[in-house]
Amino acid sequence: MLQVITRFPPEPNGILHIGHAKAINFNFGYAKAHNGICYLRYDDTNPEKEEEKFFVGIREMVEWLGYKPYKITHSSDYFQELYDLAVELIRRGHAYVCHQSSDELKGHNPPPSPWRERPMEESLALFEDMRKGKIGEGEATLRMKTTLEDGKMDPVAYRIKFTPHHRSLDKWCIYPTYDYTHCLCDSIENISHSLCTKEFQARRSSYYWLCNVLDVYCPVQWEYGRLNLNYTVVSKRKIGKLIANGIVR
């Protein structure tokens, strides 16, 4: 019988709230109920917004709720493997380097990329230039040739950020996105059940697509209802503003 392996994968960029407590209980509780294990994996792919106090606060909240992670990992543990898989994705014809700006890519109906059918060798060379810091921020992204369930085409897999990372320091100047990182980290860690809230349902097809086109192990994604409460704030961004303005501790 397959061992149940789950993970709680928060971004270390803010203070957790009661909605995260539900997610912690779902992931750790489901594993515990089935004699499985649960990882605490920090999704640390955006160095501009991550701070040490958030890493500490997340671990303390998990422990305060009575859970002990089987292992604490970071998405950044796998930066090299993720990069190697991105190169393979380009080689297989499923990704390309695009020069559309972030403003052009906003919304659900951006114009199709004129670089979608560029030769594989050209994308490989440009992706290597991105890694070496030869292309400026915002001048190129790596995009995947797939469509999300909500109709959004070719989600971004890598973007350029000349920001040192708290763990890898200045080794990397390209960082993977959630759409690219999440399913592959789940695959690398042999997660059996990827449990997430309903707003990620639109990414389920790309989750399965990416694992399958790379011929790597593919976990199952299950969604559950997001926790919404009246008369309180269930948003890291809004809670961050309340703390910054001295309204709450």
Rank of each mutant, 00 (worst) to 15 (best):
T45H: 00
K161W: 02
E149C: 02
H34G: 03
Q80E: 14
R143L: 12
Y67N: 00
Y83D: 13
G138S: 07
T73H: 02
I72Q: 00
G36S: 04
L126I: 15
F127S: 09
P164E: 14
V62D: 02
E63K: 15
K71W: 04
H166M: 10
G93T: 13
A86M: 10
P111M: 05
K71P: 00
E51L: 11
T147R: 11
P176H: 05
E81R: 14
T146I: 14
P114L: 15
G36W: 04
E117A: 09
Y83H: 15
D43A: 08
T45C: 00
K132G: 03
A125K: 12
G57A: 03
G36K: 00
Y67S: 01
M120E: 10
H74L: 09
A95P: 09
I160V: 08
E81K: 14
Q100E: 14
C98T: 09
S168W: 03
D44T: 03
H99M: 11
L89R: 07
M120S: 14
K49T: 11
P112I: 07
E139C: 10
E60F: 01
L126F: 07
K171S: 01
I90N: 12
L105H: 07
M120I: 10
A33H: 05
R59F: 01
Y83N: 12
R41I: 04
L169S: 09
H34Q: 12
G66Q: 13
P119M: 03
D103E: 14
I58A: 03
A157T: 08
G93M: 13
D103A: 08
D154Y: 12
Y158S: 06
L124M: 13
I37Y: 05
I90H: 10
S75T: 08
K32W: 01
S123I: 08
Y78F: 15
E122P: 04
Y39D: 04
P155S: 08
Q100S: 10
